[in-house]
Design a protein around this nucleic acid. Structure first.
Lengths: 226, 226
DNA sequence: ACCTGAACACCGTTCAAGT
DNA sequence: ACCTGAACACCGTTCAAGT
């Protein structure tokens, strides 16, 4: 009965009826659980218990478990966006800033692998029913698009469709990130960062303006105008 | 009782005691279920029922559900490897063959999204306990490494560490594949293929031998010899 | 050897009832 | 408005028992 379990999260005082800010507490606890033991460790029953609340109290604040996970993902996209903007700004909004953004992206994923998986990774199947999540995701993506357009205007990046360019860059950092956190790279975080920097170097060459390369012919992408 | 459900899978004849090749039937049924409804649709109970077998019969052939999923993933890596080799061979084992490999990779993922997720994607957390899976994964990766080394010898690709080069390329196609199947690209499969071809074009420039570019200086990757 | 049903310890979710 | 316990329909897995 009187087991002295150290309770990190803010629990409801046993005498008070209302929790106060249960929604925030649930979200916090969910993020913590996911970070510690992965999504599969997240159960509504344990979450409620950790907060000193019934296992169904959650339904007053979230439609279901998927809605809670969606909120977790939103939180993740917000944090990621801030880290990307920070790297871009501190790096001088140029070549260095952009490269730093790439490193920051992969670092975020490696630092919060389970959280990153919830953001992407098919845990939430129907994005249509979580519009707020789509908005946060788009906002993070926009940071990349803006940075690319800025570099195009500065003559640092070739004048391709910025959206396609951004998808390409995103795929690279996302690919490295997922391979790393899913254990497919068999690499330490130092090796992962080395790969990231190598990739950025090669991509930098690949997206340089045509004028900076020997053959100015821009039609190397094969047949089919679609 | 006598409900006429169309039974596609090979079911046990009700009078015979042994199934015959239950292991293969279980694997087949699991792949089919995953392809149709995703991993979360796969339950041992339903799988057994579809095969006219008890829900615990599976444990005679697989240690647990994770072992079944591992076998599914192995099967996927084997198929993927064959498709990559096929594209590489048919494309002439050169520039075109390599580009075709990239397209084939993404196509495989888009055609079998749930299967692809089982192969990667953290469904199987402990790769250490599934050594056969690691072997199949490595074999598929080796196809990429070999193709890159072949191109290096032909003077089509710069002489970087083939392993790092292969990880880089893998990250790109994997990134596009995952973003596509997880719905982050908001793109049709035609648009996804266009992105893949665009990416291959840019990467081709990025990994071209230094001699083919204007500035022969090969030290553009920043500090730290590590 | 291979398969079985019953039982166990879990889930998310619903719902009538409490304050 | 917010919270509760009991109940429901699911899981994967274990195990003694059957052929």
């Amino acid at each position: 009965m009187a087991i002295a379990r150290p309770a990190r999260p803010v629990r409801k005082r046993t005498n008070q009826y209302h929790h106060g800010d249960l929604r925030r507490a649930l979200l916090q606890e969910a993020v913590r659980t996911i970070q510690t033991g992965g999504v599969e460790a997240l159960t509504l029953r344990a979450t409620g218990q950790a907060l000193g609340v019934s296992r169904t109290a959650l339904y007053r604040h979230f439609a279901d478990k998927a809605a809670l996970l969606s909120a977790v993902a939103e939180e993740g996209f917000r944090t990621l966006r801030l880290e990307l903007v920070g790297a871009w700004d501190r790096g001088g909004r140029g070549k260095k800033g952009f490269d730093d953004m790439g490193v920051a992206y992969v670092r975020f994923a490696v630092a919060h692998p389970a959280h990153y998986r919830v953001m992407f990774g098919g845990v939430l199947t129907d994005h249509a029913s979580h519009p707020a999540l789509a908005v946060e995701g788009a906002a993070a993506f926009q940071v990349l698009v803006d940075a690319l357009m800025s570099q195009q205007q500065a003559g640092l990046v070739r004048g391709d469709d910025p959206l396609q360019l951004a998808r390409f860059i995103w795929a690279i950092v996302h690919g490295i990130a997922r391979l790393a956190i899913d254990g497919q790279l068999h690499a330490s975080s130092a090796e992962t960062e080395a790969l990231t920097r190598y990739a950025i170097g090669r991509v930098r060459t690949g997206i340089a303006p045509a004028a900076a390369r020997q053959r100015p012919r821009a039609s190397a992408s094969g047949p089919g105008r679609s």
